[in-house]
């Protein structure tokens, strides 16, 4: 999606160990001690081990992993809610870890805002005041706060609820408030820690639509945590998969599905509806075909299949931007659809 727009967030050799003597433990962790052994033998918890991740500007970077794999820990390093044991976090070329408390507060106010799984709204403030919270922290006066907040309240579909207390709202509506609050500061980076996990499936899809709609307009750099693969595939331009504090694979959704790095990743993707996710581009031959229907490279296999069966051809021409770019056979589609074991 889009051209290669440069790196917004760089995470370098990041380690996080929880415990009273974390620094002394890095030695063991670098030597490769397992998370279990670290806990049993040294009574420290491994949060993150040697994470390296580049987040491209204006893209959605999804972070996935089972419970306890370190997703929340990782995202909280980006705005330094958690101090690393070792490593670097660089945003727009600036070292987050070198910032003074004042600079850090400035960074959090203007550069990166956050959306939380449990919404984390202020129960003693109205929807309008919650949305404007980031602005009030910046010392912006009430009139401007209300005006700027109102824009985002309308944008997330909460018009008319400005005066409500958030505890009177449903989960979906509360997270709209959370989203509007994060957007209201105009931060370029949006950190979202399982923002939709607490919502019903239908509402979750609604919220994903809202986010995707906003993203086509706003082009934020979004770091989005989820443990739902469908959500990851739907939203992510890139997906990083964590396991026990380590990044086991980072790649595009197509990469992850076509070439899972190991059994852990394969386990993650085994229940996916492959026909609706894998794109023709992932399995096409470079050799151009003569004849057959034309399918765009980004078509998913189900749709391509339907087209080919409809036209009675067992080969199709794959096009990119309308130009022929290769070919795809029924056979290779069938192979790709079959679940690997």
């Amino acid at each position: 999606m889009g051209t290669n727009p440069g790196v917004k967030v760089q995470i370098r050799s990041l380690y996080k160990i929880f415990g009273p003597d974390a620094a002394a433990m890095t030695e063991h962790v670098e030597a490769g001690i397992s998370k279990e052994d670290l806990l049993d033998k040294h009574a420290h918890v491994l949060g993150l081990r040697n994470i390296n991740l580049d987040v491209a500007a204006h893209q959605v970077q999804v972070i996935m992993g089972l419970s306890g794999s370190g997703k929340s820990t990782l995202i909280r390093h980006i705005n330094r809610l958690i101090e690393p044991t070792a490593g670097e976090v660089i945003v727009d070329g600036e070292d987050i870890l070198a910032m003074t408390p004042l600079e850090l507060r400035q960074f959090r106010r203007s550069k990166a805002s956050m959306v939380f799984q449990g919404f984390a709204l202020l129960p003693h403030r109205t929807v309008a005041d919650n949305v404007a919270y980031g602005l009030s922290v910046q010392g912006i006066d009430k009139a401007e706060r209300e005006e700027r907040g109102k824009r985002w309240i309308d944008r997330v579909g909460l018009t008319g609820y400005e005066g409500y207390y958030t505890t009177h709202l449903s989960g979906g509506m509360r997270q709209r408030v959370g989203l509007a609050r994060a957007l209201a500061t105009d931060a370029e980076i949006l950190l979202m820690d399982e923002p939709f996990s607490a919502l019903d499936p239908l509402i979750r899809t609604d919220m994903q639509d809202i986010l995707l709609g906003l993203q086509t307009e706003l082009h934020k750099t979004i770091i989005f945590i989820t443990h739902d693969l469908d959500e990851a595939l739907r939203i992510g331009n890139s997906i990083a998969i964590l396991r026990d504090g380590e990044a086991v694979q980072v790649g595009t959704p197509q990469d992850i599905i076509m070439r899972p790095a190991d059994g852990y990743v394969a386990e993650f993707i085994k229940d996916i509806n492959r026909g609706r996710v894998i794109q023709v581009a992932s399995i096409m031959d470079a050799e151009k075909a003569d004849g057959g229907p034309k399918v765009d490279a980004e078509t998913v296999l189900d749709d391509a299949l339907q087209l080919m069966i409809g036209s009675g051809s067992d080969i199709a021409t794959v096009t990119r931007n309308g130009e022929p770019a290769g070919s795809v056979r029924l056979e290779s589609i069938a192979t790709a659809l079959a679940k690997p074991d």
């Binding site: 507060r105 400035q106 960074f107 106010r109 203007s110 984390a120």
Partner: peptide, 18 residues
């Protein structure tokens, strides 16, 4: 006070008095 709410205040750059 809810830890996550406090964390949100931190994440938006609130100072200790704020």
């Amino acid at each position: 006070v809810d830890r996550e709410v406090l964390e949100a205040a931190d994440a938006f750059g609130a100072s200790y008095p704020q």
